[in-house]
Each structure stands twice: as structure tokens, then as C-alpha cells.
Lab assay of single mutants.
Amino acid sequence: DHWHVHIDGERIRLDGASEEFIRTLEELIRRGTDARELKEIIKEYLR
């Protein structure tokens, strides 16, 4: 599956992301997590 998110107007691909990770991201977004912080979390995950 190819997922991607838009954060700060930037399109970030989440290739190979699990549904669990996507749900976690959605939860963080709902909580109002800062965009820079979200991008860091995604970069760490994709390593």
C-alpha cells in the first residue's frame, strides 16, 4: 500500500507504513502535535 500525508504543505510518502502507524499518526494529528515534530516521527519510522 502507498500512503502519504500532507504536513505543512509538504507531501510525505509513507511507503510500507503499517495501518497501526497510520492510526498513531492520525491520533497525534488529532492531539495537535506540531508539524515539525510529526515530520521527525515519520523520518524516524521510515529509517
Score class of each variant (00 low, 15 high):
D1L: 14
D1Q: 12
D1A: 11
D1T: 12
D1V: 08
D1F: 12
D1P: 13
H2T: 12
H2N: 14
H2F: 08
H2P: 11
H2D: 11
H2V: 12
H2I: 11
H2G: 05
W3C: 04
W3Y: 13
W3F: 11
W3S: 08
W3K: 13
W3L: 12
H4I: 13
H4P: 03
H4W: 12
V5S: 02
V5I: 14
V5D: 02
V5W: 04
V5N: 02
H6L: 14
H6G: 03
H6I: 15
H6C: 10
I7C: 02
D8H: 04
D8T: 03
D8L: 04
D8F: 02
D8M: 04
D8S: 05
G9W: 04
G9S: 05
G9D: 06
G9T: 04
G9H: 05
G9A: 03
E10W: 05
E10K: 06
E10V: 06
E10L: 07
E10H: 09
R11C: 09
I12C: 02
I12P: 01
I12N: 01
I12T: 02
I12L: 08
R13L: 12
R13A: 15
R13W: 15
R13S: 15
R13M: 11
L14A: 03
L14C: 01
L14G: 01
L14H: 01
L14Y: 03
L14E: 00
L14M: 05
D15P: 12
D15W: 15
D15L: 08
D15C: 02
D15K: 11
D15S: 12
G16I: 06
G16N: 11
G16D: 07
G16W: 09
G16S: 07
A17D: 03
A17Y: 05
A17T: 05
A17N: 03
S18D: 10
S18Y: 03
S18T: 12
S18Q: 05
S18V: 05
E19T: 14
E20F: 13
E20C: 05
E20H: 11
E20G: 09
E20M: 13
E20K: 10
E20L: 12
F21V: 03
F21E: 01
F21S: 00
I22E: 01
I22R: 14
I22H: 04
I22M: 10
I22V: 10
I22P: 00
I22F: 07
I22A: 04
R23Y: 09
R23P: 00
R23E: 06
R23A: 09
T24A: 12
T24N: 11
T24G: 08
T24Y: 14
T24S: 10
T24M: 12
L25K: 00
L25N: 00
L25P: 00
L25C: 02
L25G: 00
E26I: 12
E26R: 14
E26A: 11
E27K: 10
E27T: 13
E27C: 09
E27F: 11
E27M: 14
E27W: 13
L28S: 03
L28M: 12
L28F: 08
L28V: 04
I29P: 00
I29S: 03
I29E: 01
I29N: 01
I29M: 08
I29G: 01
R30N: 08
R30T: 08
R30G: 07
R30E: 07
R31K: 11
R31A: 11
R31I: 09
R31M: 11
G32P: 02
G32A: 04
G32D: 03
G32E: 03
G32K: 05
T33W: 04
T33M: 12
T33H: 07
T33R: 05
D34N: 14
D34Y: 04
D34I: 06
D34G: 12
D34K: 10
A35Q: 06
A35W: 08
A35M: 08
A35D: 05
A35G: 09
A35V: 11
A35P: 13
R36I: 10
R36L: 10
R36M: 12
R36K: 14
R36N: 14
E37N: 07
E37I: 15
E37D: 09
L38V: 07
L38F: 03
L38Y: 01
K39M: 14
K39H: 11
K39F: 14
K39W: 15
K39V: 08
K39R: 12
E40N: 12
E40H: 11
E40V: 09
E40T: 10
E40A: 14
E40C: 06
E40G: 07
I41R: 10
I41L: 13
I41P: 00
I41A: 07
I42T: 01
I42N: 00
I42H: 00
K43A: 15
K43V: 11
K43E: 13
K43G: 09
E44Q: 12
E44T: 06
E44M: 13
Y45I: 03
Y45N: 03
Y45K: 02
L46N: 06
L46A: 03
L46F: 14
L46S: 04
L46E: 04
R47P: 05
R47Q: 14
R47H: 10
R47G: 10
